[in-house]
């Protein structure tokens, strides 16, 4: 955060011509861009059977329910904006559901608390969670079971102006 100072003379026209604007680090990148640029591990073996990006209405049906760890290790990727509050790279965690995964992540990185979920436990409006490439944000959400899953992407959605 922060940028270099800018000296302004009291004469507007002259000052405007000599202005050196501070750097504004506002970056708006599409969800697709982020997936391509930030994925650091190969996609899971079955990812070729399902389109990347998933369907927001598809939901996710897995055996095992929302409780209990699958025992497998999940590769968790956060987008660059979230890295201000959490891990700078990918993270390997075990969890039986998205909620458990977020609990584990927030336990390890306390500044992530209430960034992905609000204080009622709901996903924030412009957060998208992909399980093996399938967007579960608007379907099974935090209750999504993770048995058999390999990869989790936590991204911000396209919004703003």
């Amino acid at each position: 955060m922060g940028s270099e100072a800018l000296r302004i003379t009291p004469l507007p026209q002259k000052a405007l011509s000599t202005i050196q604007r501070p750097k504004l680090a506002i970056r708006i990148r599409s969800r697709v861009d982020l997936q391509i640029q930030e994925r650091t591990v190969p996609p899971p073996p079955n990812s070729g059977d399902r389109p990347r990006g998933g369907s927001r209405t598809a939901g996710r049906k897995r055996a095992g329910g929302a409780s209990g760890s699958s025992g497998g290790t999940l590769e968790v990727h956060l987008d660059s904006w979230l890295r201000e509050f959490g891990p700078r790279g990918s993270e390997q965690l075990q969890a039986g559901s998205v909620a458990e995964l977020l609990d584990a992540l927030e336990g390890k990185y306390p500044r992530l608390r209430f960034k992905i979920r609000d204080e009622t436990g709901s996903l924030r409006r412009y957060v998208r969670i992909f399980v093996d490439g399938e967007d579960v944000s608007a379907t099974t959400g935090v209750a999504t079971p993770l048995e058999g899953a390999h990869s989790i992407d936590i991204l911000h959605s396209i919004a703003g102006g």
Binding site: M1, A5, L6, P22
Partner: peptide
């Protein structure tokens, strides 16, 4: 003008 913070 500056510093600037919390951009965006």
């Amino acid at each position: 003008v500056g510093p600037v913070a919390h951009e965006g």
